[in-house]
Amino acid sequence: TGNKTETVINGENDTVNGDDTDKTDKKLTKKERREQKKLEEERLKSKMSVAAGKAINSLEDGCAPARILGRALLKHDFTVILIYFLISIVIVGLTSFVIGKNFFRLSARLRTVTRHREYHLEAMAEQSVMKALVKKEAAQYFSSGIYVSNTIVGPLLAVGMSIALAFIDLSKPVPDLPSANLEAGIPYLLGGFFSMMSISACSVSFEGKRWWLSRSLPLSSKEILGAKAIFNLIVLTPVYVVMEVILLFVMRVNLMDRLWLLLIPLAAMPFAVLFGLILNLRFPKMHWENEVEVVKQSASSGLSLLGGFVIILPGLGAVFLSGVLRNIINLVFILVILGLAWLMYRRICGYSLERLEG
């Protein structure tokens, strides 16, 4: 019995010793994992510091004043810092003085337009009602620099983005999002640019006190408001064509993705135009003293920016979808956008213009 107990005890000791070795192995692996995590964190910190250093160096190379100020702050050279701020104050003061002295003269020249031409009576030519209304919209639009500069930004961004794609490699996987296909979101992004701050978002309010001229004509709301939508599309169409021609040479994609590059921005254009017109009819600003109040400070112009986000947000989801499913989502998106545009068009056609006279 004594021998048996010894063997049992020895066996228990063996098992205990075996368990202890397993636990120590597990403890060692945990320590190794912690050490690996620390090493990874240190590597990440070093990479971030290197990237930050490169960004700072590029900023210093491109901006000499920033380099001078940065070195002065690091070396605690208060003399250079004082000279830097004195020079800055002098430049700001001179600029303010020159602008303030000539402000009224510049404003008068910007607003004053003198034309001298002799009028010769020629044969009268007839034209359709819609053509005359579109010409009136064009004259109203191009007569205001503020109106043009604020509403042309979105389409120009779309063209600029299409040019920038020539220098951006979208085929490279994103480190944190390896499954993302950035090329799938480009049509939505371009369509969103076309939907930001449309011309129609303040076309009704821009007439202001001249609104009675349009109302005095024997025309329906479909003709008056339709001319505003048509003119907006006429302005966007050449920009859209230029953008698509650039994308034809820049984007190396298959036939199906090329089709979405054509259709999604094309479907976004009527949606943006009618969405802006609906907002302007819902939030009109007919009584104003300055054009800035209509273009920059009206509710309709501010809310029209949401049209761009309506187009861009679905693209964030399309980026993570596979080929077949992404094509289905793109088709559904186009149908939904065109359906909403049709509903807005029907509502605009039945809108009572007397509501704007209140």
Rank of each mutant, 00 (worst) to 15 (best):
G2F: 14
G2Y: 12
D14R: 13
T15W: 02
T15Y: 04
N17P: 00
G18H: 07
T21Q: 13
T21V: 14
K23N: 13
T24W: 03
K26Q: 14
K30P: 02
K37D: 02
K38G: 00
S46I: 06
K47T: 12
S49A: 15
V50E: 13
A51C: 02
G53V: 05
A55M: 11
S58K: 14
S58E: 12
L59Y: 06
G62E: 00
A64M: 09
A64E: 14
G70C: 01
R71N: 14
R71G: 13
L73Q: 12
L74Q: 15
I81G: 00
G93T: 14
V98M: 09
K101C: 00
A108H: 00
R109F: 11
R111K: 11
R111Y: 06
R115E: 00
M124W: 06
A125T: 11
V129Y: 07
M130F: 06
V134I: 15
V134H: 12
K135R: 12
A139M: 07
S144H: 10
I146S: 08
Y147G: 00
P155K: 09
P155N: 06
L156Q: 03
S162W: 01
I163E: 06
A164R: 11
L165N: 10
I168L: 15
D169M: 08
K172T: 12
V174G: 01
A180F: 09
A180R: 06
N181M: 05
L182Y: 04
L190D: 01
L190W: 01
G191Y: 10
M196C: 13
M197F: 15
I199G: 04
A201H: 08
V204S: 02
S205Q: 07
E207N: 03
R210I: 00
W212L: 04
L213F: 09
L213W: 02
S214Y: 08
L217M: 15
K222E: 08
E223R: 15
I224V: 15
L225I: 08
G226E: 09
A227T: 10
A229D: 03
A229M: 13
I230K: 14
N232K: 03
I234F: 10
T237G: 05
I246D: 01
L247Q: 07
L248G: 15
L248T: 10
F249P: 03
F249L: 07
F249R: 08
V253S: 14
D257P: 00
L259E: 03
L261R: 00
L262P: 00
L262E: 01
I264D: 10
L266E: 05
L266Y: 09
L266I: 09
F271H: 11
L274C: 04
G276P: 08
L281G: 11
V294F: 02
V294I: 10
V294P: 01
V294Q: 02
V294S: 03
S298E: 07
A299N: 05
S300K: 06
L303Q: 02
S304I: 06
L306P: 01
V310I: 15
V310Q: 05
P314Q: 11
L316W: 02
A318K: 05
V319P: 07
V324P: 10
R326N: 15
I328Y: 10
F333P: 06
L335S: 08
V336P: 03
A341T: 14
C349R: 03
Y351D: 02
R355H: 14
